[in-house]
Amino acid sequence: MTHTDDVQLPELPDGVSLVEGEGGLPAVAVHTDSVVAQVYLQGAHVTSWAPAGATEVLWLSPTSSFAPGKAIRGGVPLCAPWFGPGRDGDKPVAHGWFRTATWRLASARRDGGDVVLRFTLSGADAQVPAGEPSNVSAEYVVRVGRELELALTITAGVDGLLMEEALHSYFAVSDVRGVRVEGLAGHRYTDKVSDSQEVQSGDLRLAGRTDRVYDHSRVATVVDEGSGRRIVVAKEGSDSTVVWNPWEAKAAESADIGDAWPGFVCVEVANALDHYVVLGPEMPHTMVATVRVESL
């Protein structure tokens, strides 16, 4: 288990510190006039982002496990280098090993009112499941301020890489049964609940268990009238948008969700299923999510 005393850090600017997070896991805390945020080194996992004047934008499970090798429930997990069980359903770890590996904080700097954190990961230093490519490296740049910008760059090793990826954002909402997601109308999606292919008609209003992978490369917006705000999700280098909420029965099967399921909706910037990415030897690919909050 990594403790804060064992972490090697770059020089940290004012407003940025290394703290002992839940379960004793080390985390980078940001507290400035512009923003409050937190990122765990395990998984480079953003668990909190609240711009000045706004309430918390990300949902974090009150019963999440915070332990070495255990995925944190909520915030923005990094799903890579595959999504779910993989395209063929045969991967040994759900959503890949990026989200439980220990990342290194390579640099931290102030840029006006923003804080920019750069994390790095090498497969050679991580616990990669047997049989999976380990000569993979990644850089994750987290910019927090009035907006949250997440830029994930994955670079293949000498053998190349066929990969999927997702920034599995859990957004805090007043009640998922009352929100709608704009920007998906007319886009085809794979419904993983009904195992079917459909086309979205109008705005998406969640009315039951939802697990959809949309062919979608544009902006999606969560409209939450109960909280009086819109959460706008823009992206680059992404051809899939995933929308997920387990609903009551499925949530009851998860100790780290339970009856808290109405409090979030996942709208994920991704490349998944048919939109997997093929990288040649030592080739990089970058996917970017930019999130902002607007008042209704």
Rank of each mutant, 00 (worst) to 15 (best):
A151E: 13
L152F: 03
L152R: 00
L152V: 00
I154M: 11
T155N: 01
A156S: 03
V158W: 10
V158E: 14
V158S: 13
L161I: 01
L161M: 01
L161G: 00
L162Q: 15
L162N: 14
M163Y: 03
M163F: 09
E164N: 00
E165N: 09
A166D: 02
H168V: 02
S169R: 07
Y170H: 07
F171D: 01
A172W: 10
V173H: 03
V173D: 04
S174H: 15
D175I: 13
G178Q: 14
V179I: 15
R180P: 04
V181N: 06
G183H: 08
Y189M: 09
T190W: 12
T190C: 06
D191C: 03
D191G: 00
D191Y: 04
V193S: 02
V193H: 04
S194I: 10
S196C: 04
S196R: 14
E198I: 13
V199Y: 14
D203I: 07
L204M: 11
R205F: 05
L206N: 02
G208T: 14
R209G: 13
T210A: 07
D211L: 09
D211G: 05
R212P: 06
R212N: 09
D215K: 13
D215L: 14
H216D: 07
H216S: 11
S217C: 14
T221R: 13
V222H: 07
V222N: 05
G226M: 04
S227C: 11
R230E: 11
R230P: 03
I231A: 04
I231S: 06
V232C: 02
A234T: 10
K235Q: 11
K235A: 00
K235M: 05
K235I: 01
E236Q: 12
E236T: 00
G237H: 08
D239C: 07
T241E: 02
V243I: 15
V243F: 12
P246H: 07
P246F: 08
E248R: 15
A249N: 11
A251K: 07
